[in-house]
């Protein structure tokens, strides 16, 4: 299972990386076009959609590599066995929190689709495609959070940009 999720994480992370570049190019195109007297419309809004996708597709990879920041000084002060138990408990709560967020994002995405919610601008860009991608990111995030219950964070492992990248 972890192998499958890891493959997904890796693919999402590579995709998000390219989206970062896309985000940059959208905004560069915006000011270059404006400088030449052909202002483009809604580029900043479009870059926001890209940003939202980058964010939500990236959660799971961060979870796999323990990059989501957490406090460690209390748990590090505990003896090994107790520390392990506390961290497993905390990770169970993490699963609950992620599940709640997944549910909320899903309900919100479905409503956005039903009401054809759009962002006001020169164009009317619907929000639901972005929101469905957010749901996708949350599903993988939930799977990864569940898998992490079985492997509590090693001392000093958490946070920071991982080597895997």
């Amino acid at each position: 299972m972890q192998r499958l999720v890891s493959v997904a994480n890796s693919a999402l992370s590579a995709f998000s990386g390219w989206l970062m570049l896309l985000m940059m190019l959208i905004l560069v195109a915006d000011f270059v076009a404006r400088l030449f007297g052909f202002p483009l419309q809604d580029m900043a809004q479009i870059s926001v959609f890209v940003m939202m996708i980058v964010i939500y597709l990236g959660f799971s990879g961060c979870e796999e590599n323990r990059e989501h920041v957490a406090l460690e000084f209390v748990t590090n002060a505990l003896p090994d066995r107790l520390r392990r138990k506390v961290l497993i408990f905390a990770q169970c709560l993490a699963v609950i929190a992620v599940a709640i967020l997944l549910y909320a994002v899903t309900v919100n995405a479905l409503k956005a689709y039903r009401t054809n919610e759009a962002i006001a601008g020169a164009m009317q860009i619907p929000t639901w495609p972005t929101k469905f991608l957010m749901v996708l990111g949350m599903v993988v995030f939930l799977l990864q959070a569940i898998l992490n219950v079985a492997r509590p964070v090693e001392r000093g492992e958490g946070g920071g940009v991982g080597d895997k990248i």
Binding site: T115, N116, E117, A118, I119, A120, Q124, P126
Partner: peptide
């Protein structure tokens, strides 16, 4: 609400 913020709704 300002209706302009909800173009399709």
């Amino acid at each position: 609400a300002f209706p302009g913020h909800y173009p399709n709704q």
